[in-house]
Amino acid sequence: MIQKNTGKLSFFLSSVKNVYSIFLFMGRRAKKTKIFFLLSFLPVVIAFIIKFNQIFSGRGNVRGIYIFSNLIIVFYLQFLILILALFFGTSVGSEEIEGQTLTYLTTRPIPKSAIILGKYSAYTTLVIIMMAVGVLLSFFILNLNNLGRFSLYKILVRDVVVLALGIICYTAFFTFIGTFLKKSILVGLVFSFGWENVIQYFPGSTQRFSIVHYLKSLLPVPRTGRFSFLMFRLEPSPDGLAIFMLFLITAIFLSLACFLFSYKEYILED
């Protein structure tokens, strides 16, 4: 008998949950995850070298939290979360098409949008975990001498939340790109290191057309120091607006990805 569950939100959510659990399991074991997990440890290595140098050179005058904040902006915000979101986000749709496994999913009694949302959620979870492990380790290494200071943990939590928001938003955008375009990685690289890196420095309202603008708006602005140029010309949006915009962008691109995946015809090539 055909199981009819039209209009039941619980059926849809259950479909998303099932897809999520499958791809969280698969994603954990994928080669790609292992490679990117190693990449996400790069800042930990950098933090370790800095700390090692501070201890043994005796020049420990730069505060650990200052280095940590710069590491978040330079390495995580401008590079790592973009790379992780790009490779995991685009693969939500494209790995099923390129790997020709799409048939196994689309011949099941689940809405196609549940496939996209379930896979997106699973990959976003993985990327957030990868990022959080690296950030936590970097934080503890760089602030080894000040681990008793409560105020530092507030900074840590804020940074992790902002980066997580960035991953949620970027992964949604790249999920859309992956369902829409064949050469999604190339387009994603141009977007990440072209558009995002240029448009954020435009004066006035133009910078609001980048995702990184809203992420930077949620971070404190280091007006001085070696990496203050990264906040050059930032005209921050209010926190509430920034968070709203990040969720709005996420919702728009996820909806578009679900719509495209449901109605676009994917011809699996020989």
Partner: peptide, 23 residues
């Protein structure tokens, strides 16, 4: 097409030899 309920009564074996290889 896009009537996913039908797939509770349909089983499809594709011709192509592709899998989630790590499973």
């Amino acid at each position: 097409r896009n009537n996913y309920h039908l797939f509770s009564i349909i089983g499809f074996c594709p011709e192509r030899d592709f899998f989630y290889e790590e499973m």
